[in-house]
């Protein structure tokens, strides 16, 4: 399976048949935000646990007094040490905080880490609370101590929905022009309407110049973004 090669960059691993895969490594910002969300959840779970134990103690005689407190302490220990490893084991390398930020723990080769790797990386969390952030910030692979010892990485889950691929390409266009047109069509909904129309108009002008017959028969009076989309993403008749 994949092994990192020094001559193809640290973010790249070699997949099947030595096909290079670029790992979208998550940086310090998204990881800190994810862990912040997770600790908020740990706090909420702990509060619910305490309230639950107190409530149970009012119903069950055996839990009144010492045993109730004992169960409370044991449960808190399990939440404190088990939340992160348990969630990552149950959710395929994600905690709820990571899921919100679309992050995932993977092995060094990009595959699913073993259960022991997930446990190891999280037992070192206590040390990483002190030393983790500088380690993440200074490492090209953004690994904290637990990641280094467990052989894991945290990567972004790439969003594939809404991806636009052109089905018609004007003559003379290379990958750069295709990428620009696809990016505009993908993000047109997020842009200011006039700005999107202006950009689409400029691209249509480029098409007119490079491949004059490409837009033949297209109604140019319509919204430039719609014209561009119809002419580039519809199959040729």
């Amino acid at each position: 399976m994949a092994t990192p090669e020094s001559n193809i960059g640290e973010h790249t691993v070699l997949g099947l048949d030595n096909v290079p895969l670029e790992l979208p490594i998550a940086g310090a910002g998204s990881r800190v935000l994810a862990v912040f969300l997770d600790y908020m959840l740990v706090g909420a779970i702990t509060v619910v646990w305490v309230i639950g134990v107190v409530f149970l103690a009012t119903l069950v005689d055996g839990l009144r007094g010492g045993w109730g407190i004992a169960v409370g302490i044991a449960g808190y220990f399990v939440i404190d040490w088990g939340y992160f490893a348990g969630m990552e084991l149950a959710l395929g390398g994600r905690t709820p905080g990571k899921a919100v930020l679309r992050l995932r723990v993977v092995s060094r080769g990009g595959g699913s880490p073993s259960a022991s790797a997930l446990v190891v990386r999280n037992v070192f969390r206590s040390v990483d609370l002190l030393a983790g952030l500088p380690l993440i910030a200074s490492d090209p692979l953004a690994r904290r101590l637990g990641d280094r010892i467990a052989g894991t990485l945290v990567v972004h889950d790439q969003r594939r929905d809404g991806e636009v691929t052109l089905l018609r390409v004007p003559a003379g266009w290379g990958a750069g022009e295709v990428a620009v047109a696809e990016a505009l069509l993908r993000r047109a909904g997020d842009l200011d309407g006039e700005r999107a129309q202006a950009l689409a108009g400029r691209l249509l002008a480029v098409i007119d110049r490079t491949d004059p017959g490409f837009l033949a028969g297209v109604d140019r009076a319509a919204d430039p973004v719609a014209v561009l989309r119809a002419s580039l993403t519809s199959r040729p008749a």
Binding site: A2, V19, G109, G111, S112, S114, A117, Q158, R160, E163
Partner: peptide, 24 residues
């Protein structure tokens, strides 16, 4: 075709496939 929608989609598919099919 670097940077294109197809390259981006394939990169995501390849990573997802690697994650699912390769288990440490």
């Amino acid at each position: 075709f670097p940077g294109t929608g197809a390259a981006r989609r394939l990169s995501g598919l390849a990573l997802d496939g690697t994650h699912f099919l390769h288990r440490e």
